[in-house]
């Protein structure tokens, strides 16, 4: 058995996990404020193609990442306005965003079809550290955004559980009436975190495009990662640190088919391997549910319900 392939696979799994960490963190911030944004997949796609176009036109990867994040925040603001201001059904609004985002991304991506990403994000070199066998390429072979994503998850955990704004955010998702009684604006907090969440998802999409994909392949660019990210939030019990763990786990299952193919292990049908990440998510989702376990899991109690002061 070729050891190198397995080492490469671990590195790739962590790399894919980066998109998942960023997207899931974005969804987590949104959901912690009580807003359910199912439009993650649409945001990922649109920010991916926007970052490609921006990076391609300017020649700067960083500009690509910034544009991608801004587009993410912009799309999320549509969802925020619809669900917070207009009190629309958040599930349908999120799905509308997926449809809208997919159409928009494919429309914008028309001139990008067949083009390859010329400006890519390169892994950071740690000098001799990167040459350590096995650990080197996995731990010291990633690019800056991957390290940033992990750092963000750690910071997010601190922010959420040990700062005042973090407490306010959690309270908005659990008990908006109390936050309102404290004199804080529930609507403002929800809009803010939905947009922050959107920009994180946008960063994840841009990174996926600029560091992981060879080119724009329409919807296949994200291939359902947005939905996996949403399941990951449930899997992680709405806790940022567990997202890192879950994302790496899912990164492995997503990467497994390619590795097995490279190893020419063919007794498992490729279709089954393709299903594996979705199947794993589904099983994890079911395994984590128990009767009435929504609160045990840590779901924000007011998730998905609009806050109206007089309809309390």
């Amino acid at each position: 058995m070729n050891e190198n392939i397995w080492i490469l696979m671990s590195g790739d799994a962590i790399a894919i996990a980066t998109t998942l960490i960023l997207a899931a963190l974005g969804a987590l911030f949104t959901e912690r404020s009580g807003v359910l944004n199912l439009g993650i997949e649409g945001i990922l796609l649109t920010s991916a193609i926007s970052s490609f176009l921006a990076a391609d036109a300017s020649g700067s990867v960083w500009l690509g990442l910034i544009v991608g994040s801004l587009i993410g925040a912009l799309l999320a603001s549509i969802h925020a306005v619809l669900s917070v201001v207009f009190r629309a059904n958040q599930i349908v609004a999120g799905l509308a965003l997926v449809i809208f985002g997919t159409g928009l991304a494919n429309f914008l991506g028309k001139p990008a079809e067949g083009k390859t990403v010329t400006t890519v994000i390169k892994p950071i070199s740690f000098g001799p550290l990167s040459d350590i066998p096995v650990i080197g390429p996995i731990v010291f072979g990633q690019d800056i955004i991957t390290y940033l994503a992990i750092a963000l998850a750690i910071v997010a955990s601190r922010y959420l559980f040990s700062t005042r704004p973090g407490l306010e955010l959690r309270a908005t998702g659990d008990d908006p009436a109390t936050v309102d009684a404290q004199g804080l604006s529930v609507a403002r907090i929800r809009i803010r975190y939905t947009m922050i969440g959107g920009s994180l998802v946008g960063l994840g999409g841009s990174w996926l495009m600029l560091a992981q994909s060879a080119g724009w392949h329409q919807a296949a660019t994200t291939n359902g990662l947005g939905w996996i990210a949403l399941a990951l939030v449930v899997f992680a019990g709405w806790r940022p640190m567990r997202i890192i763990f879950g994302a790496v786990l899912f990164g492995f299952t997503l990467q497994l088919p390619f590795t097995l193919q490279a190893e020419q292990i063919t007794f498992i049908p490729s279709a089954f391997l393709e299903m594996l990440p979705y199947l794993a998510t589904l099983i994890a989702l079911i395994a984590l549910s128990r009767p009435g376990s929504r609160n045990l899991l840590g779901a924000p109690r007011a998730l998905g319900t609009p806050f109206v002061r007089d309809e309390r």
């Binding site: 306005v81 619809l82 809208f100 159409g103 928009l104 494919n106 028309k110």
Partner: peptide, 26 residues
């Protein structure tokens, strides 16, 4: 015209319909 404009319009109609719903209820 690229075919995707149709998909985009579907999404836009739904988004506007959701926003419009508020004007019907409130």
């Amino acid at each position: 015209t690229p075919i995707h404009i149709g998909v985009m319009l579907q999404g836009a109609i739904l988004l506007f319909a959701l926003g419009g719903e508020a004007f019907r209820r409130y």
